[in-house]
Nucleic acid binder design. Structure first.
Lengths: 334, 334
DNA sequence: ACAGTTTGATTAAACGATTTAGTAAATCTG
DNA sequence: CAGATTTACTAAATCGTTTAATCAAACTGT
């Protein structure tokens, strides 16, 4: 078996022209008569010719690959984001390479280098917690355009598409305060995650504005997972039993909190308020339906892809930062 | 800006050796003294050298890219599968290219060709509904190893990793019958989707075994989405109001059914039973918690990746088909 | 009929790695 | 110590494309 791939030369021979002509036809370049154009296409199809992108990229330096670096594709948030990057990129003729970093800076470094090695035309990155400028230096050095998304790198001049996390925090905080809750805890996410910091500061800002003496009951740092939401809430109930509202870093942490509260016989939305961020599609179906601040991964995905494509076409384009506005979705949990 | 990439030649020059030597060091081949080995590595690191995979692949024909073709990454089922393919592949040193077909045969064809053009070493494919052998001929022709997953192609000799869908259907059917329901409808999924057919036949088999005269009340064909679950259920309630149990092609369709039932004032699990397939993580948190047949996308992902890697290393390996056993998860909806 | 353009195609030189065949020096062997 | 072997390294060919430089033929307008 193991039939050798058919090359441009064989197509050329089959069509009775030179290899260069075939290349010209395939790229719609140069001036080629209609007759040969047709003949070449016919031969190519007949032989089942597929352009060897490695060779093409090597010679022309042009690539139709874009790389997407996220923390974890199995997280629906990033899955939706990825899906939109992919379709948007496909519209512009690009194929996407997706890789997860598990939120680990070392893995991220490896993944980025591998992608550069593969010859990506550009990169979209949701930076791992703890990244700094130096981690992206290698991309700059190779002159590869990139845009950051979701996770911002403070004080770093690069294109960025994300949410207004501070505002999201303010929204969550005000809603909870409006409902009369005062003993508020913040749960989930790692300490150096910029999204977490902004959201929490937003909540605190809303609290201070309401009453300068108001402060968070607790601020629990940990992975943004269902499991941690559960464990942290148990801890919270044990150590700060008068907590009346829990602001969770995302909806998954919130569902973990639900579980813990139910275990302890507390009624979500009545005894204790729970609010999340993201508005994952399922959250409306939870029991009780979750009150949350909606963010828009789909928009982030497609806008990031669009921005990258533009950046690839004009690398001089000055960096821009886009913050999408969040939206409060009130249901029954808070 | 736009610094030119540093090539193997520059590393060679910097280290005072030939390009061949650098290549040998980088690939741990040939016999090279420890001294030069170290010197070369040092130079490479110093210059920030990243191997140009396009060139490497062109010459050696060897690639560390594997392609994953799924219907829709934004579907958590495939997201989890993808995540596991990716990590498993990464363990074996491969980078993954992921693309969605939107369950469209044309898109699938395009995606596969693009991936071959990119020089993938192998492919993992969840075939689009309506695919036939001819769609994979191009892969065979290029001598590229591949394994199918999730969606089987009947009577086609290829490696396959999936579920025992028939058995899953039987499990769902028997459980519902055990609970005393008799007027059963099957909802969601396209008519030529092999998974759908097997699951439905499993349900019917369980029914016939219980009572030869028993038949499905309705069999509603459509996309496997929340939206369709909702719409189809409304239709069902209007046209076959005595339906007492709904078997949904997946959990997402089930949550759509929940919504429709609630709209019409029916209580899920009491008035009407609902059962799904997949056991997506959230389904335990729904109201009421969903009874479903668990399938194992994570296992599929990692086993498919493992199988593909083996296949790449030994293309002569005879095809094998693996069917993972499903597991009934009883909760409150049925 | 002539120089000048345009059209349609070709030739040959890259691109950056790997690999084969080869060489010089070092080491071994009896 | 001569000859054989091993070690450490290199020059050059090669992979399949793209593209700049050419070139022949056909067309222009005078």
């Amino acid at each position: 078996m193991q039939k050798k791939r058919v090359s441009i030369k064989e197509v050329a021979e089959h069509a009775g022209v030179s290899a260069a002509t075939v290349s010209l036809v395939l790229n719609d370049k140069g001036s080629i008569s209609d007759k040969t154009r047709k003949q070449v296409r016919k031969s190519a199809k007949e032989l089942g010719f597929i352009l060897n992108k490695s060779a093409s990229r090597l010679r022309s330096g042009q690539s139709l690959l874009i790389g997407l670096v996220v923390n974890d594709i199995s997280n629906p948030f990033f899955a939706e984001l990825s899906a939109n990057v992919e379709t948007e990129a496909a519209n512009a003729g690009y194929l996407s390479v997706i890789a997860s970093t598990q939120d680990n800076v070392e893995t991220q470094k490896f993944v980025i280098e591998t992608m550069i090695g593969q010859g990506v035309a550009g990169l979209i990155i949701s930076s791992a917690t703890g990244s700094d400028e130096a981690d992206f230096e290698v991309i700059r050095k190779h002159g590869i355009p990139y845009v950051l998304c979701v996770r911002e790198l403070p004080g770093y001049a690069a294109d960025f598409i994300g949410f207004d996390n501070f505002q999201a925090g303010v929204m969550a905080g005000e809603h909870i305060l409006d409902r009369g809750y005062r003993d508020i805890a913040f749960v989930g996410g790692f300490a150096d995650n910029t999204n977490r910091i902004s959201r929490r500061e937003g909540v605190k800002y809303a609290m201070r504005r309401r009453d300068p003496d108001l402060a968070l009951v607790r601020d629990l740092v940990g992975p943004a997972t269902r499991q941690y939401g559960h464990d942290a809430t148990l801890e919270l109930l044990a150590q700060s039993p008068d907590t009346s509202a829990i602001v969770c870093i995302n909806d998954y942490v919130a569902i973990g909190a639900y579980a813990a509260l139910k275990e302890k016989g507390r009624e979500v939305g009545a005894d204790v308020a729970v609010i999340g961020f993201d508005n994952v599609p399922e959250s409306a179906a939870w029991n009780p339906p979750l009150t949350t601040v909606e963010l828009f991964p789909r928009s982030i995905g497609s806008r990031a892809a669009k921005a990258l494509v533009e950046k690839i076409r004009d690398n001089q384009r000055p960096p821009e930062r886009i913050y999408l506005a969040p939206k409060l979705v009130v249901r029954d949990s808070a």
